[in-house]
Design a protein around this nucleic acid. Structure first.
Length: 92
DNA sequence: CACATGACCTAAC
DNA sequence: TGTTAGGCCATGT
């Protein structure tokens, strides 16, 4: 199959898939792991535009403040919060 | 190439 | 502690 998005996005999505169940990562952490410590914003951008929405746990990504940030899926942050709680992560 | 957008971060008030 | 302003990055128009 043909991969979608740019190399950067693919990198981000690949890392999202590495996040284990019940775990959450911050945009900054991911940015650092990708060797781009200041690209937190771009990371969020990639997550929001990921074409594999249901396949990628983009809801496991939160802000460095511990807040949820946002969610492009149905229900918005509300759904995100529910998913995280379901996975055992208590939202602040 | 220049401008605008967004699920961000940090500092300053 | 809450709000404002500036900076940073990748993408799309």
């Amino acid at each position: 199959m043909k991969l979608k998005g740019t190399k950067f996005q693919q990198q981000v999505w690949r890392y999202l898939l590495k996040i284990p169940y019940g775990k959450v990562k911050t945009y900054k952490e991911i940015a650092i792991k990708l060797n781009k410590p200041n690209s937190a914003r771009a990371i969020a951008n990639a997550c929001a535009k990921n074409p594999y929405a249901p396949s990628i746990p983009c809801h496991r990504v939160i802000r460095s403040d511990g807040k949820l940030g946002g969610y492009s899926g149905p229900g918005g942050v509300k759904t995100k919060e529910k998913l995280l709680k379901k996975e055992g992560f208590l939202v602040k």
